[in-house]
């Protein structure tokens, strides 16, 4: 019925609005991008004004997995395990070009893009990406969160 759809749509957008402004990130930091992640999280390029300022270091308590920095084949099972342990709804941000495509590390030790092991929602390229790029990616993620069907 039309009225039921109206209510679920409104509920969806309300939930989407709430979820996009309260992002609890799991910063899976490995490498150089971690320095730019720190810079984005700190006072100059504050990420807290987006509501995303509280990192949660437990996968059960986080909803966005920020994969920051190169993932090697040794680290890949750990990453997959952390992703599997996260509860729904969850999103993945590939921060830095090493996580998007492997970067310029085309060698025996590097995973050529984490989308070979996880489903990725937002890609933030850059080596490392400037904090402005990170915030742009975060805003795209917020749009994606708000626009999606909210399950609960």
């Amino acid at each position: 019925m039309g009225l039921a759809d109206f209510f679920t749509t409104k509920l969806d957008s309300a939930l989407g609005w709430a979820r996009k402004y309260s992002i609890f990130q799991y910063p899976f930091v490995t490498a150089c991008c971690g320095m730019e992640y720190m810079a984005t999280a700190c006072s100059h390029y504050d990420v807290d004004r987006f509501g995303a300022g509280l990192p949660r270091f437990s996968p059960r308590q986080a909803d966005v997995l920020f994969v920051v920095g190169t993932i090697s084949h040794k680290m890949a099972p750990v990453l997959r395990r952390v992703y599997d342990q996260m509860t729904e709804p969850k999103w993945v941000v590939a921060f830095g070009v090493c996580t998007c495509t492997g970067g310029f590390y085309d060698n025996y030790a590097t995973v050529q893009g984490i989308d070979t092991i996880l489903p990725v929602d937002v890609y933030i390229p850059g080596c490392p990406p400037r904090p402005e790029s990170v915030l742009d990616g975060l805003m795209k993620l917020q749009d994606k969160i708000a626009a999606g069907r909210q399950r609960f």
């Binding site: 025996y108 030790a109 050529q112 070979t116």
Partner: peptide, 25 residues
Amino acid sequence: LYEQFEGHPLRKDYPVSKRQPLIGP
């Protein structure tokens, strides 16, 4: 490197992009 890795990569006869992933393609 991880235990399951076969070979010794800095040898000259190991190609630089021969991958042995633990998971993934």
